[in-house]
Design a protein around this nucleic acid. Sequence first.
DNA 1: CAAGATTGATTCGTCAATCTTC
DNA 2: GAAGATTGACGAATCAATCTTG
Lengths: 132, 132
Amino acid sequence: MLRVTTRIRRELDKRLQAEHGMTMAEYDALVPLIDRPDRRLRMADLADEILQPRSSLTRIVAGLEQRGLVRREPLAEDARGAYAVLTADGAEAFRAAQRSHHDNIRELFLSRLDDARLRALAFAWEDFGERA
Amino acid sequence: MLRVTTRIRRELDKRLQAEHGMTMAEYDALVPLIDRPDRRLRMADLADEILQPRSSLTRIVAGLEQRGLVRREPLAEDARGAYAVLTADGAEAFRAAQRSHHDNIRELFLSRLDDARLRALAFAWEDFGERA
DNA sequence: CAAGATTGATTCGTCAATCTTC
DNA sequence: GAAGATTGACGAATCAATCTTG
């Protein structure tokens, strides 16, 4: 199962790159940002949300910033910290990517499972992270 | 779910490296070899089994060969081809790695699911590869 | 000296190009 | 010219070391 999901993730990544020039690591980083009303998160908090080391997030945000999808902003309260802020371009690019990404997930994954199997999966995984 | 499984795989990989100096890609490549009675497979066939591009397999086998776990062997029938052959050292190293890898899978994954959830997972994933 | 963040250096994975044999 | 396999070159991920501010 780990093998299959890895394979699906690889294919999703490839398509996202081909269709939107965006890696899945970048996509994953944008998700928590677009969910925020102010579209910003501190670097460390964002890194934790997407389960990535801080150094990896630095590279990811650097790439996104260069393409104008995210910008860094210093904090007033703490001169050490920095926000990653989603730009208007970034929000638009993300939504476009999200549409085809969801389509791809349906095609490669969800459509291959009937209702009973989907329910079984939902049951098996619910609260996995929270359980011991 | 894809996120969680990716995270588990990352942790499994890290532990395999720390405990046995072996990546999961290497581990995955050894599995089909140890299953064969003659402990050998053609490079292209092995690449297909583990769902990796041929070029990736070449690197993986190169690393394993350097450590004496695998050796390359030319084919009598076709001078283009090459076998990857598991050595005695390789078989021993693999079995040791396999023990702790299975322990790690139990700890990070299986132990967090009760029987009902394990059955649900098995049901959801059975024959996934074979279905449309 | 701890926390937030970045950088240097290394490794891993992959594509496209290449080499050899069929 | 196609198949089997490897190599060159590049991108992505991550650890340890570093820089700055608290």
